[in-house]
Structures are given as C-alpha cells and as structure tokens.
Design a protein around this nucleic acid. Structure first.
Length: 647
RNA sequence: GCCCACGUAGCUCAGUGGUAGAGCACGUCCUUGGUAAGGACGGGGUCACCAGUUCAAGUCUGGUCGUGGGCUCCA
C-alpha cells in the first residue's frame, strides 16, 4: 500500500495527500473559508465524518453547511446537543439513543421520571442555545469495547451499556464528545456546536426501550435543526403546505367524508365522496372483465367455527368484532368478517372442480371490520371498517408464475392511471406466528422472489418475518403527503387455507390435487387508497373521478334559461354537471367553483346565450375563451372516458 | 393498548374564576354584477361528556369519550 493517496474532487482535479489525511485537512489545504464551513465529506456515495482518515484513492466531495447533506449532519449533532442540554438541566437523566427519521426530524430517548412538558422545551432550547454559543468542538474517538463499557458503567449509563451489547463483535466502536457530553455514536458530526444554526423542539412522546412493548417506556423528544434560521422557516412553511394536502382536511373541505364519535374510525362517505368511491369500484369492475375475474357477494356475519377452521380465531381473534344475538352474548358465536378469504374457500369447496376450470379468479368488495387498537387509527388510512378490491385466485401450482405475472401487469396498469410513481415493493417472509410447514414456506417465498427477479424494472426489498400468518407476500407501498408509507396493493401466496378447507381439484390423470390460493388486492383497502390518492392529487381529482365534473355559472338571471339548457345538455352526455343559480357576482361563483376543485367551469352571459356558446374556464387556470357548447362537451366527455389526468 | 397534546357555533379560532365572542359558512332582503370574496339585517352554543373544588367553573382537579402526533401493532 502506498503512503500517499489521490483524491479526486468534483471539478475533476486530483490532489495527493499522505495516507490518513482527514476530510477536514483536505478542506484546509484548499482554503480557509472552505475549511471553516466544512461539516462532512462524501467519499464515493458515502457520507463520512470530517475527521475520518482517508485510506485509499477515492473521489471526494466536501460538504458545507449549504449542501443538502449538511442537514443530516447538523441534526445529528443537534441531537447530541439536546441530550447534553437535558443532562445539564436534570443531572442523572440516563440517555438511550437518538435517531433521525425520513423527514428532517431527530429524536432522543431518555429515562426520565416524568413526561416532558412544553414548559420543559423552552428550558431545553435555551440550554441548547447556550451550548451552541459555547462553540464546543466535536471529538471523535475510536475505542475498544471494554473501554466503552467501563466508561458507560462509570457514568452510570445503564441503557448505553445494554445498547453496547447489541453491537456485533468486531465492529468498530466510535465515541463522540463535545464538552463533557459523550455518546456512543457512528457519526458524522459537525466541527463544532457553532455550526448548528437553528434548533427547535417539536414534540414529546413515550417510546418503548428498543421498540419492545414489554420493555420500560422511555421519554422521547423530537426536534429539528438547520444550518440557518432561514432554512428552518422554509421547513415550517413546507410543513404548512403539506398540511393543506392532508386528506382529512380535504375530505371536509370538499364535502367527501366525515367521522362521528358514535362510530370511531369508521368513515361516513357523503354523496360527493360516494361518487369518488364508486368511481374506484367501477374502474376495478371494468378491469375485472378484462382480467377474467368473477365478482361475488358474501355474508358479513359468520359462525365462529369458520375462523377456528381458517386459523383466524387463533391468530387474529383480538382484531375481530363479535356480533352476538341478544341471548347468546356469553358464547361469542357470531363474528363479523375481518377478511373474505374463508368465505371464498367455502364457495370454492362447495362443488367439485376440474383442472380445466383453473385458474378461478373471484372478486369481492365485501365490507370488512377489524378492531384496530385505539391508538393506531387515523383518517381514512387506518380505519375499523372498509372494503378491499379483494380477490382470490385458485390455481394449480404451475400456474402461480403466470398468475403473478398478470397481477404485476394489472397493478401497474391501474397505478399508471393515477400517476403513482413512487412505489416501493417488498417481499415479506415467514413471521414468528405462522401456520404450516417451514418447507412449504420456503418454497412459496422462492416462487415470489423468482417472479420479482424476472420482472424488469422492479426493485424490491425483503421484509424478513413480515408475512401473513398463512403465507409470504409482496406488498406495494405508496407515500402520503406527510411522507408516511402506506401499503396498498398486496399479493399473498397461501398453501395453508386450501389445506384447512380441504380444497381439491381433479387433475388430468384423475387424481385429486390441492389448489394454491393467491390473495390479492390492487387498490388494497378502498378507504386507504382514497385517502392516499386524495393527497397525491392535492384534492384536484382527474375529471373521471371528480364528484362534480362541470359547473355552469350564469352571470345574470336573464340567461338562466339558457344556463339550464347547457346543464341539461351536459347531463345528457353523462357529465356530472351542476348549475350555480345564486344571485352572486361572477367572481364569487368562480371562487367557489375553484375552491370545490371543479375541473370545468362554464361561464354564461348575454353574449353566450345569444350565440349558443359557452365560455370555458379550466380548474386553476385562466379563462380559455368562448367556444361552442358541443366542442366543450366533446372535450369533457373525451377526458372522462379516457380517464385522462389532464383537463 | 402505552406516552404526550388537544376538544368553545357547520369550519378556523379568540376568550385563564364573575352576564359566551370574531371571521367565514347558513337564512332573509337589496343588488343583475364578465373570470378567485357586493351590501344590510338575522338565526345559531348544555363551552365533548360525567363527577368534584368554589359564593361562582368554558376557565381549576379527577374520570370517560373522541381527535391529533409518536410507540407498539398493522392479515
């Protein structure tokens, strides 16, 4: 190994340094100003601490406070400063660990005798300001495990000692200090606390130690930090914009749905929301014809024996509602379905099948009820009653591959209609609470993995232990306005249910065989899809889904009769059209039409009435000018029929 | 289920122990106005619910329900 290394900078220039030179030293050799602003480095694709010695030839980019990567480093350092502030204010408070999440927030957990209150936040923020002003340098130490253990024992940091155990043997352990604060940490960190330009604490909550419900609950504080006050102000402005897209807010403003305490976590869809909801179902029904599905309708309430047989009683009982007859309360015999699959098995098993019949694809929009624990429900994305575009495919083992291929086509065809592009695919494998032979599981997981591998343009991540209790699955996640991921589509392979329900088909050789069952949903929960989609569009639904597609705005009462004709003509062509009869000024009517996000506004005054024309205004755009009624309606109908995303 | 915060008119919110308020929305009337808010008047509240403290509670205390943000869970 040579004793000098060659560093390539972003402008393409190369510089030679002695091996072991740090990122900061490289910055210093380039310029004083750069060195002062350096907060980290990027070696290759990897964000590294500015104190990291460079050991091999590599491309290097110096990260200053202005670069996008700086935020992560600054927040990470603010995290330590916050922990330091808490320990300064309340000596003896034990620290657990900090973490950053996806959305410019950091958190730190403490063992603290009581929850943190908003008043505490002020004190902590003041203390943090003091630490930042002290301009304390961050120091990095690479140390051996025993030293760290002894240090943490000496400092009384029991939680840290326990955390240390979890670090795999052989992994390098680093400590970061600033002032008298020291934490076990991978880094990277800024040079000194002065580089943290602006901090704000956001909220407090409880959090289980190591994320395990059986452990003690620690007190967590969330905060955020930026290089400057200006960046922080921009962050809060951005958050406010996102709140405007929140589907719960849009649902109320656009009169789509509401919730009532009498039925917690159970949405009421208003007439407008119901149009949208049914629009989604209509889409699926139309595609079912193409993809060979048969829709069925099944009961809501079942004898509990069904769930004992399917395995739900054992694995899923806590999440189920029971609906017993008045004189039967003790026995909990009647249960409301949380899933459709057992009913579909009963249907399949109700007659004999030939291999020639397979695959059989059945679809069911049946209403499901699941008792979600009180703390987990939110808006439309996690509810207690919902429908899925649920479907089950019964097929032979060698049909699995082609069925899953078809499902990928189906899913991507549907998602394209909504312009969903940020989709993450996961393969979830055998969970702890699983039914059936591990070997069967292994096989099923392999089948799914193979299908994913073969599919071009699909990247997937493995979610170990995250499968359903009856089989492995492929999930498709989409993000909401606040950046939270929600599972929409799912494909689940199931060898257990056919066995439990003793399902059979007669093969070509006359022998009885067990079919494979594929559980699948494309929208997933229609409610959740509704919510995520609403945020995705920011309420601006494409014409085919807009509850009110067109609104006629007469300027004066004198043209009311013609306005009625226009409205009737639109309706005659199948357009959901309304007429604003109120004696308000045009500006006022436009404002309301825009606020309700109606895609097409048709303004009608004396000139239009005289010539049999309309003046068109498209949603969030200016006046498009006077056109003939027919050409406007042609356009509207065309956009609706093609399920266009454009107006 | 656990931790924290919140709950006042349909909506957004003000009101910190002493006679419930504003804007928007809603109703009536006037206005017939050409591309994002015309005017006047009016109706509307068991201050989430139940207890308690107090001469007096929207306001203080406890509980319940609901909502929000997290944790755990999420077939």
């Amino acid at each position: 190994m040579s004793s000098t290394i060659s560093v390539t900078l972003p402008d393409g220039s190369r510089r030679e340094y002695p091996q072991g030179t740090t990122v900061l030293e490289v910055a210093e050799s380039i310029g004083k100003r750069l060195a002062r602003d350096t907060v980290a480095g990027v070696v290759g694709d990897c964000l590294v601490d500015l104190r990291t010695p460079l050991v091999a030839d590599a491309p290097l980019r110096i990260v200053t406070a202005r670069d996008p990567e700086a935020g992560e480093v600054i927040r990470h350092s603010a995290e330590h400063v916050m922990a330091d502030a808490v320990q300064r204010l309340w000596p003896g408070t034990l620290i657990d660990a900090g973490r950053q999440d996806h959305s410019e927030k950091y958190q730190y957990d403490f063992r603290f005798p009581r929850p943190f209150k908003p008043e505490d936040f002020e004190k902590i923020e003041e203390e943090m300001a003091r630490i930042i002003k002290e301009d304390l340098e961050f120091e990095r130490d690479e140390v051996d495990r025993e030293q760290v253990r002894q240090l943490m024992i000496d400092r009384g940091e029991e939680l840290k000692v326990e955390r240390l155990e979890a670090i795999p043997e052989g992994e390098a352990i680093t400590l970061y200090r600033h002032g008298s604060f020291v934490d076990l940490c991978r880094g990277p960190h800024v040079q000194s606390t002065r580089q943290i330009g602006a901090v704000r604490l956001l909220e407090a909550s409880g959090a289980y130690f190591k994320g395990d419900e059986s452990n003690e609950m620690l007190q967590r504080i969330y905060g955020t930090a930026f290089a400057s006050k200006k960046e922080m102000a921009e962050y809060f402005a951005r958050l406010e914009e996102l709140r405007k897209r929140d589907h719960r807010r849009l649902g109320r403003e656009l009169d789509l749905f509401s919730f009532h305490p009498e039925a917690p976590a159970s949405p009421f869809f208003h007439p407008r929301g119901t149009i949208v909801y049914n629009g989604l179902l209509d889409l699926m029904r139309e595609k079912y014809l193409e993809y060979g599905y048969h829709e069925i309708i099944t009961p809501q309430v079942f004898d509990v024996e069904l769930w004992k047989r399917s395995g739900h009683y054992e694995n899923y009982r806590d999440d189920m509602f029971f609906a017993d007859a008045f004189d039967d309360v003790q026995d909990r015999n009647n249960s409301i379905k949380p899933m459709n699959c057992p009913a579909h098995c009963l249907l399949f098993g109700g007659r004999s099948h030939s291999y020639r019949d397979l695959p059989i694809r059945i679809a069911d929009f049946g209403r499901l009820h699941r008792y979600e624990r009180s703390g987990v429900v939110t808006g439309l994305t996690r509810v207690r009653t919902f429908s899925q575009d649920d479907g089950h495919i019964f097929c032979t083992p060698d049909q699995i591959g082609s069925e899953i291929e078809k499902l990928f086509d189906f899913i991507f065809e549907i998602y394209e209609l909504f312009g969903f592009d940020d989709i993450k695919v996961f393969l979830s494998t055998r969970p702890e609470k699983a039914m059936g032979d591990p070997k069967v599981w292994e096989h099923a997981e392999k089948v799914l993995a193979d299908c994913l591998e073969e599919r071009d343009g699909v990247d997937f991540t493995i979610n170990a232990g995250d499968g359903a209790f009856y089989g492995p699955k492929i999930d498709f996640d989409v993000h909401d306005a606040l950046g939270r991921a929600w599972q929409l589509a799912t494909i689940q392979l199931d060898f257990q249910m056919p066995d439990r329900f003793d399902l059979k088909y007669i093969d070509s050789d006359g022998a009885e065989q067990q079919p494979v069952m594929i559980h699948r949903a494309i929208l997933g929960s229609v409610e959740r899809f509704f919510g995520v989609m609403l945020e995705h569009f920011g309420g601006d639904l494409p014409p085919w889904l807009a509850p009110e597609q067109l609104r006629v705005l007469p300027i004066t009462d004198a043209v009311m009769e013609y306005a009625e004709q226009v409205t009737a003509a639109a309706r005659a062509r199948g357009v959901r059209a309304e007429l604003d009869r109120r004696s308000e000024k045009l500006g006022y009517k436009i404002r309301e039409g825009e606020a309700m996000k109606v895609p097409y506004l048709l303004v009608i005054g004396g000139r239009e009435a005289e010539n049999g024309t309309v003046s068109l205004r498209l949603r969030h755009r200016r006046d498009e000018g006077v056109q003939s009624l027919d050409s406007v309606l042609d356009r509207v109908v065309e956009k609706i029929e093609n399920r266009s995303l454009e107006l």
